[in-house]
């Protein structure tokens, strides 16, 4: 009698191989392992629970359909994260179009506001307990525009280079640099304000 494999003890690479052969139970284990991370990335970009659930779910559907294309050049979770990021970027563009605004026209980063922000000389996160720091960062991120937040997430959390971000967002490297600069300066300012609120 054939025995059921113990999926929980298998590495991602083994589960991927089984899934590529059509083993849905192996795929279920992969979903179980990484669902929080994939949802978290969607949520960080969309800041909307419902949209994030739908997009992360869609990412898993796409992953199953394209699993044969996964060659193992990166880790499975990195590959999955790229899928969900692309879906979120598509959704952000759709939302933008619905608001009848051009994604290229979004140019608050070019308005020069960030150039006039005073430099934050004292590190506003120094000495903070990690949980508190994470809360503050999340609160500050929520106050950025979607475009600035996206650039910051892709650069700081996903370690993507300017060129790669520009390609994914469908904009120029100059726009990426400008948005990233604004996002960082604004984050420093917001983190400083949050520090002042607590003291």
């Amino acid at each position: 009698m054939p025995t059921t494999p113990d999926y929980t003890s298998q590495a991602d690479s083994e589960l991927v191989k089984s899934s590529q052969k059509g083993d849905m139970r192996a795929f279920e284990e992969l979903v179980g392992r990484h669902r929080d991370k994939i949802y978290a990335r969607a949520f960080s970009m969309m800041r909307n629970e419902e949209e994030a659930i739908d997009l992360s779910q869609e990412a898993w559907v796409k992953a199953w359909q394209r699993l044969v294309q996964f060659q193992g050049d990166s880790s499975f979770v990195t590959w999955m994260t790229r899928i969900v990021i692309n879906l979120c970027l598509d959704q952000l563009r759709k939302n933008k179009r619905q608001r009848a605004e051009s994604i290229e026209a979004m140019d608050e980063d070019g308005g020069g506001v960030e150039r006039h922000l005073p430099v934050v000389t004292v590190n506003p996160t120094e000495g903070l307990e990690r949980g508190e720091l994470r809360q503050r960062i999340d609160k500050a991120l929520a106050q950025l525009s979607k475009e600035h937040r996206t650039v910051l997430i892709l650069h700081e959390f996903e370690d993507l280079e300017y060129k790669e971000i520009a390609k994914r967002m469908g904009c120029s490297i100059g726009t990426v640099m400008s948005r990233l600069f604004y996002a960082r300066r604004r984050m420093a300012s917001l983190l400083q304000s949050l520090k002042k609120e607590r003291t």
């Binding site: 669902r35 929080d36 978290a40 629970e49 659930i53 992360s56 720091l133 994470r134 960062i137 959390f157």
Partner: peptide, 8 residues
């Protein structure tokens, strides 16, 4: 230091 979010 990204906040950990769990799927609800």
């Amino acid at each position: 230091n990204e906040l950990e979010v769990k799927l609800p």
